[in-house]
Simulated scan of single mutants.
Amino acid sequence: MNKHSATELELDLQVACDNQHLPSAAHFREWVLTALPAGRQDAELTIRLVDEAESAELNAQYRGKNGPTNVLSFPADLPAELNLPLLGDLLICKQVVEREAIQQTKALLDHWAHIVIHGTLHLLGYDHINDDDAEVMEGLEIKLLQQLHISNPYTPQCEDSTQNHE
């Protein structure tokens, strides 16, 4: 039995960029489900695919950083007593993901998978602000990507893979 067979995922995929060469909705769904903990019953999130202008604007507004970034995560800030499955929103910049895949000599779909899993983990509360947290998060990413038959994204040629993200 698949670890996600009982997980109800409501995924709102918004395409606000050039839609050529994007992964399928099924890919995004698989990647989010892979990042969710086993036994999770329900999850809701939005993934918005954007161009560099929108990414740069929101990166400046919410993180105080110039330029576009690969992924921004906006966790839902709901009171626990509501017990709602809303995880939050991911904003992913198509051009940055494509450029990073080329720079890091990664297969484009593999890099998309990594960025979606990385962002979903942020929505679940993981972070990489300090070295210990980064080690935990990266280890989990490597494990989850291996389940998808994707190699370690933090190999030497890829060590800058998530340098400019949230």
Rank of each mutant, 00 (worst) to 15 (best):
A16M: 02
P37T: 08
A43K: 02
L13T: 00
A43I: 06
R48F: 06
R29F: 02
L45G: 08
C17Y: 12
L33G: 06
T34R: 14
A35N: 14
R40M: 15
S24T: 15
S24F: 02
A53C: 09
L22C: 07
S24Y: 00
D18M: 03
F28H: 15
D12Q: 09
V15R: 01
L13F: 13
D12C: 05
E52D: 14
L13K: 09
H27K: 10
Q20I: 09
R40V: 10
L13N: 02
Q20A: 13
R40F: 06
S55I: 03
H27I: 08
R48K: 15
R48Q: 13
E52N: 07
A26N: 03
W31P: 01
G39Q: 06
E57H: 10
E52Y: 00
A56F: 08
I47D: 12
P23A: 02
L45Y: 08
P23R: 12
A16Y: 00
Q14D: 11
H27V: 07
D51G: 14
V50N: 05
V15D: 04
Q41H: 14
Q14H: 11
Q20Y: 10
E54F: 09
T34D: 05
L49I: 10
H21T: 11
A26C: 03
L11V: 05
L22S: 06
Q20V: 06
G39R: 05
E57F: 09
L11M: 09
D12S: 04
A56G: 13
A53W: 00
P37K: 14
H27P: 09
E52L: 04
T46S: 09
Q41R: 13
A56S: 11
Q20W: 06
G39E: 08
L58Q: 13
E57L: 02
W31K: 05
S24A: 14
A38Q: 14
Q20M: 08
A38P: 11
Q14L: 13
L36R: 09
H27Y: 15
A16I: 02
L13G: 00
W31I: 01
N19P: 11
L22Q: 10
R40L: 15
L13Y: 10
L45D: 01
N19I: 11
A56W: 08
S24P: 04
E57T: 03
F28V: 11
R48H: 05
L22Y: 01
F28Q: 12
A35T: 13
D18Q: 10
I47H: 05
A38R: 10
E54T: 14
S24Q: 12
E30S: 14
E44T: 06
A38H: 07
R40N: 09
N19T: 12
S55R: 07
I47R: 12
